[in-house]
Structures are given as structure tokens and as C-alpha cells.
Design a protein around this nucleic acid. Structure first.
Length: 359
DNA sequence: AACTCGGGGTT
DNA sequence: AACCCAGAGTT
């Protein structure tokens, strides 16, 4: 009778060894066992660099130390804390799930993968992260780091954004996972990808996997991983009218299925083409929209722009002082300057407000 | 399976 | 300018 202990691959052993001897990456949530904190950190970190998410995580933990605190918070307040981080559906789902955990699970975070992955905003990556970090369950994370490390080490050129690629790398990640230390291993491979096997300039010269790395041995490091989808970007033209009436400003919340859902903005006119507004053209346009008005154009901003992943937004801000309340705007959300500062806006607007808007 | 959801750092 | 980032939801 021969006892075969579960054979750890050289890859897995090296990753763990590297983690224990050379990994000096520090993050506030590292080693965290509180599933609420882990979940929060993972939602924040989806498609977000660690350095960008760090301050948000600290602010959320400070303001909402427990899931009960978060669940009880008003949506606007949570959005304000999320402001500037992007992908705002994450924020909406965050609050939804916090409330579900309180109501359905009595505030106790589920501890089974199948339950965790059913939470809104939690997909395969996040479920594996929570399951392994909080409960040491043997689920392998597959994030951008893991795609990169595995595709290079194994020399796999299947596109990571294809269905076949996702399946292949998920299976490969599960195979490489250290079943005894899944949490530590998951953390280690991501840290390794972020600090050694980096996207553009990987540190192959002092990589502990160099000798067995297929990509390094064949000179394919800078060609892996493979992506097949091509990014297209469309240009949109936004004109924001900042209507001011008796010390208050018109705002509205974006609700449509579009960018910045849940955030606030001013009165928006989107046009097919770029507009070069003048006092005359603005006045004419406003009369057409609102009817004859007694108003004053206070300022027309120079062109502003913001680059999103799939869109280029060109914007112009026009401040308008109103003497009377037009019917079209009467049902709007008119806020004081203080109220304005409590609302979450897209970056295009916060940038304008901080730099150009001095009432 | 394709599309869409931000904002910012690195090269 | 292109690529990437501790991905997920919708159609």
C-alpha cells in the first residue's frame, strides 16, 4: 500500500514559498477574517487598483463598522462615500446585499460558497475570495492577476475573455490551488501577479518561477495573456445647465440604463454634435425649452471632457440665473449649496464644481 | 456570447 | 493612445 499525499505542484509550492519569504505587500484587509470586511473590500476592488480602493475601504469601515450600520444607511449617503470610485452599480448592490444579510441572514454572513455567490454583486471571483479568506474553503480566485500568471507560466494563449478561456483558466486555477491553505494561496498568487508577474514590465529576471515558466522559456511573456475583444469608444456631447433660483440649484438623479446610474447631475441636454454655445444660442435654446423666461446667463464654461472605458464624454457647463420658476423645472430637486455637497456626482461634474463653480 | 457598467495609473 | 485594474449584471 502506497500512500500518495496530495501532490503539490512546483508552481503551487513556489507561490507559497514566495509569499512567506518575499511578499511584503501590505493592505488593510489582508489577514482579515471578518466576512463583512472581506466582502466590502472585494466589492471595492472589482476592476479597481488596490491603491485606488484603499482609502475608500478605510472610510467605509470607519463609517460602517458593521453590516448593520451599512444596511441602515440612506442610499444617498452610501453613494456619496462611493463617489469617484466608478462602476456605481457596485454601490447599489452593496447596499442591497447589506440589507439582505441583515434581513434574511440576521446579520450573519453566509459561509457556504453556493449561498455567497447568490448575493447580488458577488460573482465567481468574489465568492471564491470570501469563501477562501473568511472560511478557508478550497475555491480558487480567478482575477486579472491569476489569468496573467497562469497563462504565462503554462504558456496558454486561449483568450481570457472568451468563454473557453474562462472555463480553461478556472479549471487550471482550481488545479493549482493549495487545498490546505486556499486563503493564503489565493492571496499569494494575486500579490505575485501584482508585484512580480506584472502586465507590462514583469520582473522575470528575479522571478522564482523563471525556470519553469513556459512564456519566459519561449519568449512569449509580453504576448500573454491573450485578449480577443477590441475596445470601441463612442463620443457623446453633454451640455449641463446649472439653473439657480433663489439660492438653490436644480439637480436630478440619473435613473436610466446608462452611465452614472444613481448619481446626480444638473439639467442635461445631450446633443449629437459638439455645441459651441454663445449667449445668443443659449438664450434661444432655453426659450425654446422653457418658454419665454426672465433669465441671465452667468457663465459658459470652456469644454470639459472625461474619458470612460467605452465612452468619451465632452461636456459644457452653463450657469443660468432664473427670475421665475419655469413649470418644466418646478418638480425638480432644488438644493441649497450645502445640499449640493451631500449629493454624489460623476467626476466630470465634481471636477467642474471644485475648479470652476464659485457661486 | 456580446455589451455595458468609471476612473485612474503605467507604459 | 493603449492597456490594465482583486468583475459582475444584463440582454
Amino acid at each position: 500500500m502506497i500512500f500518495v499525499k496530495s501532490m503539490k505542484s512546483q508552481f503551487t509550492r513556489t507561490i507559497l514559498q514566495w509569499n512567506r519569504t518575499q511578499n511584503n505587500r501590505e493592505m488593510p484587509w489582508k489577514g482579515e477574517k471578518n466576512p463583512y470586511h472581506i466582502w466590502l473590500s472585494e466589492i471595492i476592488l472589482q476592476q479597481t487598483r488596490v491603491e485606488q480602493g484603499r482609502a475608500y475601504y478605510n472610510r467605509f469601515i470607519k463609517k460602517y463598522p458593521t453590516v448593520f450600520k451599512l444596511a441602515a444607511a440612506p442610499e444617498q449617503e452610501v453613494f456619496k462615500l462611493w463617489e469617484g470610485l466608478g462602476y456605481y452599480n457596485r454601490c447599489r448592490n452593496l447596499l442591497y446585499t447589506a440589507r439582505e444579510i441583515v434581513q434574511r441572514y440576521n446579520g450573519i454572513f453566509p459561509d457556504q460558497y453556493e449561498e455567497i455567490i447568490q448575493l447580488k454583486g458577488v460573482g465567481p471571483y468574489t465568492a471564491a475570495a470570501i469563501a477562501s479568506f473568511a472560511y478557508n474553503l478550497p475555491y480558487a480566485v480567478v482575477d486579472g492577476n491569476v489569468f496573467r500568471v497562469l497563462s504565462r507560466f503554462h504558456g496558454v494563449d486561449t483568450a481570457i475573455d472568451s468563454t473557453a478561456g474562462k472555463q480553461l483558466f478556472t479549471a487550471l486555477a482550481a488545479k493549482m490551488l493549495d487545498k490546505k491553505f486556499p486563503g493564503e494561496y489565493n492571496q499569494a498568487i494575486m500579490d505575485f501577479g501584482a508585484t512580480v508577474c506584472k502586465p507590462m514590465v514583469p520582473s522575470c529576471s528575479h522571478c522564482p518561477l523563471q525556470n519553469n515558466c513556459a512564456a519566459y522559456q519561449t519568449g512569449m511573456v509580453n504576448r500573454l495573456p491573450v485578449k480577443e475583444k477590441i475596445l470601441t469608444r463612442k463620443t457623446r456631447h453633454f451640455t449641463y445647465f446649472i439653473f439657480e433660483y433663489e439660492g438653490k440649484t436644480f439637480t436630478r438623479q440619473r435613473t436610466g440604463k446608462d452611465i452614472w446610474q444613481g448619481l446626480f447631475e444638473f439639467y442635461l441636454a445631450e446633443t449629437e454634435k459638439s455645441q459651441k454655445w454663445t449667449v445668443t444660442s443659449v438664450t434661444a435654446w432655453l426659450e425654446e425649452q422653457l418658454g419665454p423666461q426672465s433669465l441671465k446667463i452667468l457663465a459658459i464654461s470652456s469644454p470639459e471632457s472625461q474619458q470612460l472605458t467605452h465612452q468619451q464624454i465632452n461636456g459644457c457647463f452653463i450657469r443660468v440665473s432664473l427670475k421665475k420658476m419655469p413649470a418644466l423645472l418646478s418638480s425638480g430637486n432644488w438644493v441649497t449649496p450645502k445640499g449640493l455637497s451631500a449629493l454624489a456626482f460623476p467626476k466630470l461634474i465634481t471636477k467642474y464644481l471644485s475648479e470652476k463653480y464659485k457661486p
